[in-house]
Design a binder for these strands. Structure first.
Length: 112
DNA sequence: GATATGACGTCAT
DNA sequence: CATGACGCCATAT
């Protein structure tokens, strides 16, 4: 299992109309402190069926430079993500990842 | 193994 | 708010 695949899984669970930050994704994927690598993994995301537009920087800031950034904003607005100035309204559209469960009872799918 | 590269994050100016 | 320095770490060369 590669780093890329784990990150990919997390990104895929961001619901439509919501957004998450690189750092949050890194944490949710089990690699805290690897926000940059998340960005790296998203290169070519468009060719990977990944909702790359739902990944933004801390505070909802769009970090993609130039046209790509405009593109991202449009895509987000298209799916209903709200903006406040140049940033995503994380307060309203920030996706909270479910906390990692250690409780065996609630563990589901591929138990082993 | 050594260096270089980033769609990052945080803290200090 | 704008910069800059630094830490971070998977890949690329």
């Amino acid at each position: 299992m590669s780093y890329f695949e784990n990150v990919r899984r997390i990104v895929l669970r961001i619901p439509r109309g919501r957004a998450a930050t690189y750092g949050e994704i890194a944490r949710a994927a089990g690699y805290p402190g690897t926000a940059r690598q998340v960005a790296w993994a998203l290169r070519g995301a468009s060719a990977q069926h990944l909702p790359w537009q739902r990944v933004v920087g801390q505070g909802g800031r769009i970090l993609l430079p130039g046209d790509a950034g405009m593109n991202q904003r449009l895509r987000l607005e298209m799916e209903g993500v709200l903006f406040i100035g140049n940033r995503v309204d994380m307060k309203a559209c920030g996706f909270k990842f479910p906390p990692a469960r250690t409780d065996p009872k609630s563990r589901r799918r591929t138990p082993k």
